[in-house]
Design a protein around this nucleic acid. Structure first.
Lengths: 336, 336
DNA sequence: CTGAAAGCGCTAACAT
DNA sequence: ATGTTAGCGCTTTCAG
């Protein structure tokens, strides 16, 4: 029995064993549901544990088994403003709770710690970015890694949950064309992630096929509205005939909408507007903005689940899973 | 030396001690900067550790010291969509990294786990809500708790970081009145948190002083836009003379703006609109919406810092800290 | 089916 | 200023 900060004492497995009249080995086996013990003794142990309010000392288990009971979730700082990622975090944490794992959040600043090694059994990386030193550090720990979206470098982590963003970008462009747009522009992300690269690639390819000159501006993911507005303004001033705009990041469409209106456009009629990432703000804009639902929560769940399969040995290294997305058509691309 | 998943071996403190030609106690003391050891030996140990790529086995330390090196951060699920909380998470994690602590995220679903006891040294609770069973569970662990915002029940956790939301709501109402509003309405939150209670309290008190009848509707924090629109519509249909609206939650203003415009109002002129929580969406709405900056990141930093002070014994139980906010005036309350 | 004993890596108490 | 020893609570041999 050990004193806790609460002043009461925490029962150890020895206490449970004594209460149940068995050895601590048997108590341990019973608690973990090993087949070794008879049903009768297992029940006795379980009852004893409940009576004593026993809960396992994870440090002791960790030391013995060389596991931690936690997974790490790396979130690049740039993502603070995106609902996609907040939902992703929830997905991961919920799924982990179901498997009795804790989730430790890792953010970029931690690279400052000299030789920081996260105290976890595996890692989930969100949207790994080329040349992120923290991604480098984390992948070189040797821990199994599952990433949401592929590595732009093409490197293969133990598991990948990815979506075909290029395909949905094409679908969105086709939709714009069907609604009358002749010359869609793109405001991409400066971030070199698989996501941003594929969207830009799909956009250029679509333009080539459609025989139109691509019009691209870029802004950092999560950039201030004022910066986005400046980039968009410069882009539109330098081109003629642009009649639709796709924003890659989820803040772009909201940021440029007032600029477009101020320029005399009627969004959804003479000018179409859409986003490659949905957010609740886009639903309530007037007009509501067409967007690709990137399913943050589902992606988080899928990543965590895959990591647990890898940890249990139920999945092989190199596994990958495609998560389908959905194009949500709203008024901003109604057309005339 | 222990095999890691990476295939290479991890050095233990014994390896470091052997390499440096000292006992493992001395190695341990040197590594932790205890005054026991001479400068010369400390250097030798540090060099040995670096050479071997030593990093401490936290499970072993945990077992020995009865500490975990992690703090828990409880996030009620209802908050997914709010930037305030995402920033808060960042604040906590960054501050924790600086003190070499990990952050374990706890979400509501975990109460399903039979007798879940988080494996942490202390807890940060975001906006504790009356009757949340998880808050109950967590506060009864006996671990030191710091909450962002006070408990609505009046209970005193070990530490509190709070803001005077009532005062800023009053300031906002005075501002609306100065800009010509005669009858401001409130769309509050159904959540029984200190934050929502104080805003509603301040609103009612202000109305009493101003001699106007309060007009209140409520919606759950983070509710769908459609629900908010319905509530707002019903409220405005049932009252006459309402010429301003304050939304408590950060999604309210964006949700009702189109409804108001559709009803023939010109926001910022004949009808003023404001929010008690800022978000980037409100900045880019047209017109931009006046809001109270709730300083999520700073609150997170302050909570984590206070928790570490409590853990070190540098602060007393019952400490509290007021975090000042800021009213950001934008075009939606320009007035005629 | 169950028990006894060893030991994971670390730090604290007690030596010197 | 440093070393020796014990032991945190658990799981895993190895013996019955």
């Amino acid at each position: 029995m050990t004193e806790t900060l609460g002043g009461h004492v925490a029962a150890t497995i020895v206490d449970v064993a004594r209460e149940a009249g068995v050895s601590k080995t048997t108590a341990s086996d019973a608690l973990r549901g090993h087949g070794r013990v008879s049903d009768a003794t297992r029940q006795a142990v379980l009852v004893a544990a409940r009576n004593l309010g026993y809960s396992i000392n994870r440090s002791a288990r960790s030391l013995r088994t060389q596991t931690t009971g936690a997974i790490g979730l790396y979130i690049p700082q740039v993502l603070v403003r995106s609902e996609h990622y907040m939902s992703f975090v929830y997905g991961v944490v919920n799924e982990a709770a179901g498997s009795d794992y804790d989730v430790t959040v890792i953010v970029a600043g931690e690279e400052a710690r000299p030789n920081y090694a996260p105290h976890v059994d595996g890692l989930v990386l969100i949207d790994p970015v080329e040349d992120d030193p923290m991604v480098e550090r984390l992948t070189s720990t040797g821990l199994p890694v599952v990433s949401s979206e592929r590595f732009p470098s093409g490197r293969q982590p133990a598991g990948v949950v990815w979506s075909d963003h290029g395909r949905y970008a094409r679908e969105l462009l086709d939709h714009l064309a069907a609604r009358g747009a002749r010359r869609p522009a793109l405001i991409g992300s400066t971030t070199v992630s698989d996501w941003s690269m594929r969207i830009q690639g799909a956009y250029r390819a679509w333009c080539r096929l459609a025989g139109v000159e691509p019009v691209i501006a870029v802004a950092p993911f999560g950039a201030d509205a004022s910066l986005i507005q400046r980039e968009a303004g410069a882009m539109l001033a330098g081109e003629t005939g642009v009649d639709a705009l796709i924003g890659a990041g989820d803040g772009v469409a909201a940021a440029v909408a007032p600029t477009l209106t101020a320029a005399g456009h009627v969004i959804g009629e003479d000018f179409l507007l859409a986003s490659c990432v949905d957010s609740s703000a886009l639903q309530v804009l007037n007009p509501a903005v067409t967007a690709i639902d990137t399913k943050g929560g589902e992606a988080g769940v899928a990543c965590a689940r895959m990591l647990f399969e890898l940890l249990r040995g139920d999945a092989d290294r190199g596994t990958s899973l495609e998560l389908p997305l959905e194009l949500l058509i709203r008024e901003s691309t109604r057309g005339r």
